[in-house]
C-alpha cells in the first residue's frame, strides 16, 4: 500500500494500539511479589537489565498486549504470544542497594514471561 499525504492525518490520529483483544489468563494479581527473570536474549526484549533478578510487587494489571519479544520476530516465523503486562513497583534500594535513597521507587511495565513468583 502506498502511504499518501491524504492518509497521514487519519493514520496519526488513529495510531496502532498493541493491545491484544484475546482472552489470556494473568499469571499474577495485584499485590503479588514477583522477581524479574534473569533473561539475556540476543533478540528484542523490553526487560530492562537493571531489574533482572530483582524483587518487586505487582501494582496494576494493564491487560493483554502483544508480547514485544515475539512480536518483533513474526517475520522470522516466531508465533505471537499475547500476555498480561503489569506495572511492577520496585524500591530504589532493592534495585541499587543501600546507597539509594530510602523513599524512592521505580515503576516498570513487565510482561508475564519476564516474571517469577517471589
Amino acid at each position: 500500500m502506498l502511504l499518501t499525504a491524504e492518509i497521514v492525518p487519519g493514520l496519526v490520529a488513529q495510531g496502532a494500539s498493541a493491545r491484544a483483544h484475546v482472552d489470556v489468563p494473568p499469571k499474577f494479581k495485584v499485590g503479588d511479589k514477583v522477581r524479574a527473570r534473569n533473561l539475556n536474549p540476543t533478540s528484542h526484549t523490553r526487560l530492562p537489565g537493571y531489574v533482572r533478578g530483582r524483587e518487586g510487587v505487582i501494582e496494576f494489571d494493564y491487560g493483554v498486549f502483544e508480547f514485544p519479544d515475539t512480536h518483533a520476530r513474526v517475520f522470522e516465523g516466531v508465533p505471537e504470544k499475547p500476555q498480561h503486562c503489569y506495572r511492577v513497583r520496585f524500591t530504589a534500594r532493592e534495585v541499587w542497594g543501600p546507597t539509594a535513597h530510602p523513599v524512592d521507587t521505580l515503576r516498570v511495565d513487565l510482561f508475564d514471561d519476564y516474571l517469577d513468583p517471589a
Binding site: S17, A18, R19, R46, L47, P48, Y62, F65, E66, P68, C85, R87, H101, V103, D104, T105, L106, R107, V108, D109, L110, F111
Partner: peptide, 11 residues
C-alpha cells in the same frame, strides 16, 4: 518520594 516510571512496554 521520587517515583521513576520506565516506559519500556506499550503504555
Amino acid at each position: 518520594e521520587v517515583r521513576v516510571w520506565d516506559t519500556t512496554a506499550e503504555l
